[in-house]
Amino acid sequence: MLTEFLSLLCLGLSLGFADEKKNETLPKPSLSALSSLVVGHGGNVTLRCQSHFQNVTFTLGKLQDSGYRQEQRSTGHKAEFLLTHLEPKDAGMYFCTYKTMDSQEWSGESDYLQLEVKDDLDGRGATEVKN
């Protein structure tokens, strides 16, 4: 009877541990630019998102535009998002998140990167922010 009790106790503890692991939040990823974050009108920039895990799905988002989302699966620890033919409207704060293949939950957002697109027409740096 004591061995049955100990077996059930161990089973309960291990199930509780599994539940705890499920509710753990994923560490936030890092986001960096492979070149300058100040880009001329029509220019390109590559943003790299990195996580501590392999085999993840990354998303790139824009703070001022909830409809903006690029998604990319990666077998490694990182994904690179190429932003091309940039215009002043593309300027803003970018972030990335990820989820592992085992999880349906997304990580927290990376720190934000401020992308500036210079408007060559008037020579000023234009950073458009949508409300």
Rank of each mutant, 00 (worst) to 15 (best):
V129R: 07
L60I: 06
T59G: 06
G108Q: 10
L31V: 06
T75L: 15
Q64E: 06
L82S: 00
E116Q: 10
K22E: 09
S32E: 10
Y68T: 01
D111C: 07
G12H: 07
E87A: 13
L37R: 04
A18L: 15
E109Q: 15
G67V: 11
L9M: 10
L13I: 09
T57F: 08
L82H: 09
S107R: 03
R69G: 00
E71Q: 14
L31P: 02
E87Q: 15
E80K: 06
D19G: 05
Y94Q: 02
P29K: 04
N23R: 13
C96E: 01
T97W: 02
T84K: 15
M93P: 00
Q72D: 01
D65H: 05
T97V: 14
H52W: 09
K28N: 02
V45I: 15
S36E: 08
L13H: 05
P27C: 03
H52I: 14
H85P: 00
D122A: 00
L11C: 08
G16L: 11
E71I: 12
R73W: 08
Q50M: 14
S51H: 03
E24C: 02
R124E: 07
S32N: 04
L115K: 03
K28V: 08
H85I: 11
G76E: 13
V56D: 01
Q104D: 11
G61R: 11
T84C: 09
S66Y: 06
Y94E: 01
G16E: 04
E105A: 12
F17R: 10
K62W: 01
K130M: 08
A33M: 04
D90S: 07
M93R: 08
G92K: 02
K21M: 12
L86W: 07
G43V: 12
P29F: 04
Q104P: 02
S74Y: 04
L8D: 09
P29Y: 03
D119E: 05
Q64Y: 05
A126K: 15
N131C: 12
Q104L: 11
H85R: 11
R48Q: 11
T84E: 08
H52A: 13
A18E: 10
S14Y: 02
T46F: 05
N131L: 15
C10I: 15
S103L: 06
T3K: 13
K78R: 10
L13A: 05
G40H: 07
D19W: 12
M101V: 15
H52V: 15
S7Q: 13
R69W: 08
E109N: 06
Q104T: 07
E71M: 13
F5A: 11
L60V: 06
T100C: 05
R73K: 10
V117M: 05
K130D: 00
S107N: 02
V45Q: 06
S30I: 15
